[in-house]
């Protein structure tokens, strides 16, 4: 769906996000099942990219998202969004998550059990705006669930609420941690569409953790391939997953 069409349909006159580019250059030691490894990532992410982080578990995908969100502190390096320094180990800058304004969707969705669907979404807003909550409810097809509590929702419904809540804050960057892994195949296909919708509406960077090739090809404009904390390839999905690299990636040591 074209971006313009989507906005017409939902009465969002302008994109929710401010847009911008993200420059990452960090190292972080992490503990995996194979022992200690270092996560080393250097990347420039352009405005409006939908980037997939692809790799086995323990490759550092979730850690990288947490570093970007400010939930985990890198050992060294810099993270800069537009002109704002989020992290700089030399200058001792480390913006807390509250000031980075990222939308983070957790693997378990982390919906607040004490709030209804509507309250979860409006909790994400910087300024209360009932009109916008209604638009988000409509966009993600949640109107009839607005007064339900998360415990009553199915996995796919929770995922849509989590997306809507993340968007309500109008984040600079949208971070999605394996958003579809807990869902069955058909639900995945349907919700890939919701993710694209969220990305287009936000009109800024979306970074998504995935280990599903189909998902990467369907959604991503670019992909970073991680293995044991190292970036082993990056670029367009078709280039990254050309025969050589895939063989290399899946080869056993």
């Amino acid at each position: 769906m074209k971006i313009e069409n989507l906005r017409d349909k939902t009465n969002f006159s302008s994109p929710l996000g401010v847009g911008g580019s993200l420059s990452i250059s960090i190292t972080k030691s992490m503990l995996t099942t194979d022992g200690k490894t270092n996560l080393v990532v250097c990347a420039e992410i352009q405005d409006n990219e939908l980037l997939c982080l692809f790799g086995h578990s323990g490759a550092g995908k979730t850690t990288l998202l947490r570093l970007l969100a400010g939930l985990t502190k890198p050992d060294k390096g810099r993270i800069v969004f537009n002109d704002t320094v989020w992290f700089d180990s030399e200058k001792k800058i480390n913006l807390p998550p509250q000031e980075r304004n990222v939308g983070y969707m957790f693997q378990d969705y982390a919906l607040f059990p004490n709030m209804t669907v509507e309250e979860n979404i409006s909790f994400g807003q910087k300024e209360k705006n009932k009109d916008e909550v209604n638009k988000l409810l409509e966009l993600f097809d949640l109107q009839i669930l607005r007064n339900q509590h998360p415990a009553k929702l199915s996995g796919g419904q929770k995922q849509r609420v989590a997306l809507a809540r993340a968007l309500a804050a109008k984040p600079n960057v949208l971070l999605l941690d394996e958003p579809l892994s807990a869902l069955d195949y058909e639900m995945r296909l349907a919700l890939q569409h919701e993710i694209r919708k969220a990305h287009e509406l936000l009109n800024t960077i979306t970074i998504m953790v995935s280990h599903d090739l189909q998902e990467v090809f369907h959604l991503a404009s670019s992909v970073i391939l991680l293995k044991n904390g190292m970036v082993i390839n990056e670029g367009k999905p078709a280039d990254v997953f050309s025969k050589n690299y895939t063989q290399n990636y899946y080869s056993f040591p």
């Binding site: 969100a69 939930l71 983070y104 982390a110 607040f112 059990p113 909790f123 994400g124």
Partner: peptide, 25 residues
């Protein structure tokens, strides 16, 4: 833990998170 972290990423302070997310749950 993700509930606290979700609240932080939504821009809420530790106090707001405590009062509106932790206590009610």
């Amino acid at each position: 833990k993700s509930l606290r972290e979700a609240s932080y990423t939504l821009g809420k302070s530790k106090l707001t998170t405590f009062l509106r997310v932790l206590i009610p749950n």
